[in-house]
Amino acid sequence: MSTRSEEEAKKTPYELYIAPRPFSFELDSEMLVLLRKDCDPPLIVEKFAAEISGKKQDDVDTIAKKVFGKYGEDWMRRTLKLGEEYPDRTYEILKEAVDKTGEMKFPLVLQRFIEIAYLGTQQFRILPIVENWAKRLVYRVKDCYIYKLEVEKCGQEVAGSLPCRYACLAACKTALDGLGLDAAVEMEATMVKDGACQFALNRI
């Protein structure tokens, strides 16, 4: 007995696949160190704490928008740059898939850079992804390092208003712009109410 696929296999020479080179499928540790050096959470939280000291409660939100908004942009710009400079095999294969299909830039390329941004600055080992499909990319930030520092440096009351959300929202926007993608950024859950912040990038 011989199946069709086998007849075809016999016609072509039997070549054995060998991965092009020993190459990591995980993130480059040197890149993560560089990212942490340039966008270290303690520095930004200290800067924010210094700016709001002595200011009225009403001004805190405006300052947060300015300070964390700027930080979010810089943080993601740096991530986009370092992420391209330090590729890994997973990214190379992803790029092949994007080139072949013309799809998957949203959500997967975007997802890669968002993961690098958080893994490079936070203390957790994985960034939980809630949804990643053609219309939506949703991720969750639990045990946030910046939030923890805010509680320490600015007190529970200021931290409870989540001034740092401007950083995450600005980072998402910057990533979308940097990759030439269009999506609406939304915050679906907050640390204070739900125990974790959840951000959604919607194309619906």
Partner: peptide, 8 residues
Amino acid sequence: KLRESDPR
């Protein structure tokens, strides 16, 4: 890991 085995 990283390479196909040769069934021959």
